[in-house]
Amino acid sequence: MRFRIRFAQQVVGFFLLLALAILVGVIILMGLNQRWFDRGYHFTSRFETADGLTPGMPIHLRGFEIGKVSSVDLNSNNRVNVVIQIYSDYYDKIKPNSVLELDKGTFGIGGGLNLLPGRNLLPPMENGSFIPSTDTILGKNLLAQGLVDQPTSNDQLGAILAQVQTTLGNINQLLGDVNAAVEGTSSNQLTTLLAGINLTVRDLNRLLAESSQGLVPNLTAITGDLAKLSSQLRDPKGLIPKLLDPQGSIATMLNDHNQLYNQVTTILSQISQTMTQVQGVASYVNQSTPQITGVLEDTRTALHNADNVMTGLANNPLLKGGIPEQKPQHFQAPGLRDEKF
């Protein structure tokens, strides 16, 4: 008789028990994972609209799920009352002055609420307290007063922007070298010319300082360098004619077996890569995060300037002179609905 038939009872018993074990195991794992046994702490909030709000949606603090939405109701004043549950482990993060912000996520998938905790060392808010949302005046005021701890950037963008930063660092170093070389071989007249550019650089710095992003110090330096170079290059009486002068010191610099030119070509390819990445980011950036759009605008300006330098330097050895006139292009984060599928 075959094994299965002879030991039918044992085989069937094992088959059923294992299935039961799977079910029980899954339920236990699910319970632990979803904190069924954690009553947590409840808070209330208010939003203008329930668009994008659903019971059960997660609440994140810097990417960590710290709770979930318990209920969403329309109140008598036609505002939306929201009750949230914060897991016990994260209760101590709910400082006074905390604000809730709706994160719709890309394409409306995987959204949730972001908790922006109050920037203080006070004990956590009491169970059942009201946490204002960014829809409310109170929430907006708390944000404006800087009482709220806001993350620097969206996590998805963070990774890509880190790459941008590395590339920009490389560009900066190279441009510094170029500037040093140019300045070191130029006459006093050139130094005077450069002084006039400081104004532009300051303007740029001021602009960039407004968005206090981690990216910015690096970007400021780059933009400075780029602006300096670019202005010099664009000036009809400036650097280029001097460089083009066969008597000029640039001839010496270029007489280095195209080392500088090769470096510049490398920059060109890096810039092109960076632009691709930036455009990739742009297509997923949500319009609701204008600070990111600002950073990208700055990045784009810097890269545009760098591109001008490239064109100038590339043209220079061929004695064609100068940087062609270009109409400035403004960066726009395209709306998601403009995408063609």
Binding site: G105, T106, F107, I109, G110, Q156, Y284
Partner: peptide, 8 residues
Amino acid sequence: PTAVSTNL
């Protein structure tokens, strides 16, 4: 794409 949703 992971940018659309990591857990879709």
